[in-house]
Amino acid sequence: IYLSILNKITFLPVAALLLLLSVHTLAEVVKSMSDCSQFFLDQTPPHVPGVLEDGKILNQNRYKPICQTYKNQRRFVTLYDTKNKIPVFSTKAAGKNMKRVNKNREYNHQAGSIDYQSNKTFDKGHIFPSSYASTLDDKKSTFTLTNIVPQAESFNKGSWNNMEKCIKCVMEKYCINSNGDTEGFVMTGAQPSSGSFLNNRVNVPSALWSAFCCYSANMEAWIASAHWGDNVQDEFKNKFLETITLEALYQKLSISNSGNCVCF
């Protein structure tokens, strides 16, 4: 089960890069998640059973921690699965402009544009949406193939997009800190399927999920919610995903809740 914790921001940040986006972008593979701990809530990496436990990557040959750097500034951190060729989780950084990458090149350890060619079923579904980026450079840093997964087209453009817009509105209204800034913690992720692959290389997730929490200074309380969507075409237009509790999401992901707001 893949989990993604997006870091605290004003408004919100991003995902992951192995593939160079431009000359300004550096995929900085580091030795451990602690090298980019500033992007995690309480500087504590998420707990992903069998993948990342107690801050340690269990299979370092398969899972690569990346401090994503854009214009000489670290903007987010990602743990990337080089076998399934999709992000495990991301913190901090989506768009359609993939023109700056080599479309005909096949990469051994990550997805490439060629994997999505001649495909009429799946979009390049971004784990972290560009609309959540706080600056133009943060927004640009989302245009990367390692911030995407194969996502059913109408699901991506329909109910999932509706959910992202709703969460952004909620956070802009309620997630205001004592300085008057929007500040929150967002988690997004993809649950990999057991045997569905695009181009026989890139895992097609069975579901996507998202969760957020923030401390509202005005309400003097933590608020949180989560969403889950099967990675299939929407059954009808204007579909909205059901809002669920974090506990319900934990049950779906078969993870016990060991924390107060973000426990992964």
Rank of each mutant, 00 (worst) to 15 (best):
L79S: 10
P13M: 05
N119F: 10
W222V: 14
T10N: 14
K56I: 15
S4P: 05
I9D: 06
N59R: 15
E235N: 11
S258Y: 03
K64P: 06
G184C: 11
A27W: 03
I167W: 06
N161A: 13
T142R: 05
K165C: 01
L19S: 08
S193V: 04
L12G: 00
Y174V: 11
D123G: 06
E53R: 02
K99N: 13
L253A: 05
Q151R: 13
G195S: 15
Q38A: 10
T144C: 15
P87K: 06
R201H: 12
G184V: 00
N61W: 00
G95P: 04
K96I: 03
K56S: 11
C36N: 07
R201D: 14
S118A: 14
T44R: 14
P87V: 01
W209F: 15
L3Q: 00
F143W: 01
D181N: 14
Q73V: 04
E164D: 01
Q151Y: 06
V170K: 12
V77S: 14
W228N: 07
H109F: 12
S134K: 01
E247L: 02
I148P: 02
C214Y: 08
F185C: 04
G259I: 11
E247P: 00
I127P: 01
L145T: 00
G50M: 02
Y250Q: 07
G189F: 03
R201S: 15
F212V: 09
A224R: 06
A93R: 04
M171R: 05
T78K: 03
L26C: 10
E220P: 11
S34N: 13
S196K: 15
N199Y: 07
W160P: 04
N97L: 12
T82K: 13
C36S: 10
N156P: 07
A224S: 15
L26A: 13
D42K: 15
N257S: 11
S134H: 02
N200K: 12
E172A: 05
F197N: 10
L241V: 05
S32H: 13
P49L: 06
H227F: 06
A133P: 02
I9Y: 05
V77L: 13
A94E: 11
L17K: 12
L12C: 00
G184D: 11
C67S: 12
D137T: 11
V149A: 03
L26H: 04
K237C: 09
T10F: 07
F212E: 03
L241K: 11
P65E: 09
I86M: 10
V262D: 01
F212L: 04
A217K: 11
Q38M: 11
T121A: 14
S216M: 06
Y132P: 01
S193W: 04
L79P: 13
Y215G: 10
G55E: 09
L26R: 12
I57T: 03
M171K: 07
T135M: 06
A15H: 08
P192E: 08
M163L: 04
S216I: 10
L136F: 03
Y70F: 04
K85R: 09
K8F: 02
T10V: 07
W228Q: 13
Q110F: 03
P65N: 08
T243F: 02
L79I: 08
W222I: 10
